[in-house]
Computed example of a mutant assay.
Amino acid sequence: MSFLLEVRRLRLLAEFATRGTVAATAEALHLTGPAVSQQLAALEKESGVPLLEKRGRTLHLTSAGQLLVDHARVLLDNLAAAESDLAALRRGERGTVRIAAFPSAARTLIPLLWPDPYAAGHQAPTLHLVEHEPEAAEAALLRHRVDIAVTHSYSLLPRPLPPGCESRPLFDEPVFLVLHPADAAAHRLAPGEQADLARFADACWLLPSPDTACHDMTQRVCGAAGFVPRTVVSAGDFAVLAALAARRAGVALIPRLALPAPTPELRFHPLSTPVRRSVHALYRTGTGRHPDTRHVLDRLESAARTSTASEHAGLPQPPRPPASRPGG
């Protein structure tokens, strides 16, 4: 039996350990359920020990199966690194890197990747962008439909790192209360003052769409302030929320990256109890050494520094969390 086929079976076993079911493994690898079962049975026969056992109606790894998965992941990571090293010898070739990014990053951060003056004698990889919320971006990454997923998590709503992935932090940013100056005055909020959200329990609230982490963030922050927000608008675009806040339709919580340009009709206030959004670039384990992927990750870091240094440089700064507080 060829070594390549054995590696494919090990990859399949590792995928089963990540997905948990034959059906999910088959979907991820674009195979049929019977094909996955046959390959797992063949691998078990080759190993000479039981790798899987039935508990009720579902399959689970045995201790031997888990041991083989641990070794398989090391092997697969090393193979991915070897492929990257070989690709490094062919740097003059033009590759393609597929990126999934949430909307405000797709609007403000990803465009900074163009144009791309690569090092002399080398061609920059072609970039493909698809806009996805973090959950969908992670799913696309795990299904090998993209190579990099730019995602975010909030300090009070952390997202676990998906199995089989690595993360490169890009930046942290504060969340602001956005409202019309007249609404700020009505709630006794002076220009530049940190906003105590408890004052806004009776306000009309403009919320992101219910299927987003940003919606959950607003609900959680208001709940921590002691009230349930009275929602009058639900929209998938922060620009819509800001435009309505400028018309005194209500107030909104918006991360710095998604803020519009300052206008006389809008005020941005840091929160007295800070909430931060962390932005990350995720990629599958072992692929970060691929020259094209590594190049785009480095460019993303550079773009993040440029974006955070230039975007809204005159905004009021939120209070720094205590040194013992974990970053969000």
Rank of each mutant, 00 (worst) to 15 (best):
D196R: 01
S302C: 13
L142D: 03
A186P: 03
L67W: 13
P111H: 08
R145M: 07
A124H: 00
S2F: 13
R11T: 07
P125N: 00
A252I: 00
L89Q: 08
R55P: 07
E27D: 12
R90S: 10
L29K: 05
E93A: 12
A235C: 04
A82W: 13
F176Y: 15
D172P: 06
L51N: 05
E46F: 10
R220N: 03
G327M: 13
R159T: 15
L75S: 04
L259D: 04
T231S: 12
Q66W: 06
S234N: 05
L282Y: 05
A140G: 08
T273V: 09
P160A: 06
Y154I: 06
W205V: 00
R57H: 13
P134R: 03
D116W: 09
L10N: 05
T306Y: 13
L253T: 05
R320E: 14
G65F: 06
A185D: 06
Q123L: 14
L207S: 09
D237E: 02
A304N: 10
P117R: 04
A35Q: 04
S324V: 12
L170W: 13
V49C: 01
S153G: 09
R98E: 05
P319K: 11
R320Y: 08
D172C: 13
L266Q: 03
E193D: 13
V221Y: 06
R168W: 15
P125V: 01
A195C: 00
A313L: 09
A24F: 08
G314P: 14
E311K: 12
P255I: 02
V175Y: 01
I254R: 07
F200V: 00
L179P: 10
T151V: 15
S155R: 03
C204N: 13
H132W: 06
P160G: 05
L244K: 10
G236Y: 00
R294E: 10
P321I: 11
V130A: 11
P229S: 00
P321Y: 09
T231E: 13
H269W: 02
E15S: 05
V146M: 01
S153V: 08
L156C: 03
D298Q: 14
G95F: 05
H122L: 15
T126D: 11
L244E: 07
V240E: 14
G48C: 01
T32V: 02
R277F: 01
L244H: 11
P158Y: 10
V178K: 12
A225F: 04
E27N: 04
S84G: 15
D183E: 14
